[in-house]
Design a protein around this nucleic acid. Sequence first.
DNA 1: AAGTGGTCTAGACCACATT
DNA 2: ATGTGGTCTAGACCACTTC
Lengths: 237, 237
Amino acid sequence: MQKYVVISNDIRNKIVKGEYVANQQIPFEKDMCIHYNASKMTVKKALDILVAEGLVIKRRGSGTFVKDLNLEEIERVTMANQFRGTTALNAGKKVRSKILNFSIVKVPEEAAKKLNISLGSFVYDIYRVRYVEDEPTVMEKIYMPIDLIPNIKEKNISGSIYDYIEKDLHLKIQSAHRTVSVRKATDFEADELGLEKGDPVAVAEQIGYLDTGNAFEFSTSVHRYDKFAVEIVLTRN
Amino acid sequence: MQKYVVISNDIRNKIVKGEYVANQQIPFEKDMCIHYNASKMTVKKALDILVAEGLVIKRRGSGTFVKDLNLEEIERVTMANQFRGTTALNAGKKVRSKILNFSIVKVPEEAAKKLNISLGSFVYDIYRVRYVEDEPTVMEKIYMPIDLIPNIKEKNISGSIYDYIEKDLHLKIQSAHRTVSVRKATDFEADELGLEKGDPVAVAEQIGYLDTGNAFEFSTSVHRYDKFAVEIVLTRN
DNA sequence: AAGTGGTCTAGACCACATT
DNA sequence: ATGTGGTCTAGACCACTTC
């Protein structure tokens, strides 16, 4: 493992375990260099990870300090804000799908724009309801170009599509651009998700990218309002 | 300006202007070092900014590539996902407040936890509706410790509280931890925001931190569902 | 004036992909 | 075998805070 990861893990642990407490000044970078037998750049990189996570604050001229977080907030921040699908997010729980549609169609105009492919291309058109512990939780409408993600079978979309892409096709998912908004459920969505007509839903529109830089997925996830939250750490420069 | 900012700005411009196009491989770091007369670490840092923004992708052993983004997505990604208040987010538009409450109270239990201050401390209790271009847009319930943010007057909370904190008090806002969720509007909220009873609202719970590491704000913003969206770029690793 | 973190360098070595 | 990006170093200089 890289040295900067080791160092940042070590410091994160000290914060989580309470060895470094809220508002405490932690050792100077200079001293950490000696302690970890690392160069300044390496220690700085380790600390910058913790700044981005929201655990510590650096002030030029003064030093580095533990943020004044309560326990709950430390926990929240610590379970990394990673990019995972429904299956991975609910690891250990029973996740299954009800497939509403699975076909190949000419790409709709909006999806063509989002996927940056030409009109007339073919895409998988997947529509499914995801159940977590037998509770309907989210409805997913997914478009995937058939030439990028070939050979999808019904069994692949019952489970984790990401697993199929990474483990079976050996492709690498690199990132996703997501827009979260809010609206009222349609009657059909309300029905499938076990909501009342007009109840709120959270809508996450997502474009997923492979490590080739190509968009492999344009999806719209409609979440039950009582089973949805996003956590964000915002930093000013 | 720092050299790595200059370099990343330059490359970003080339992408935005279309000089580097989707899926194109951009020059090697080695060559950029020569071109910009910079060291490898500096060029790498510049490129890593663009990776985090979602504009490019790096593959060890292969090179660096422009992500396959459509124009709209480039624009979206480019207008930085910064941390700003309602006033700054709607710069150029008319923003005003209707103040529903402005008082000093003993901190409620939840706020004490979030702000990590002891029960019995006093906080400002601010409740206001924000109007953008005379349309009610968001209701904000804000708690601020009086000893951190002293001397707030009615006029400060009609406008941007962040401006008061930074320009008048000369404090530095460092970051915020935000949780976004969805629920139904209460009748009172619906009334103030011009919604129907039970309409959806987006709720952003936020803890704001100064560069001292102290929480200076615990706020709950209730947004009209048709005037709310969050953009996120998620990266694996 | 002294000490902090921020930037930058020149060069070494490593992990990985392509040829 | 060659060449990519990733990590790491030792040390220089700068911006800023504190004394």
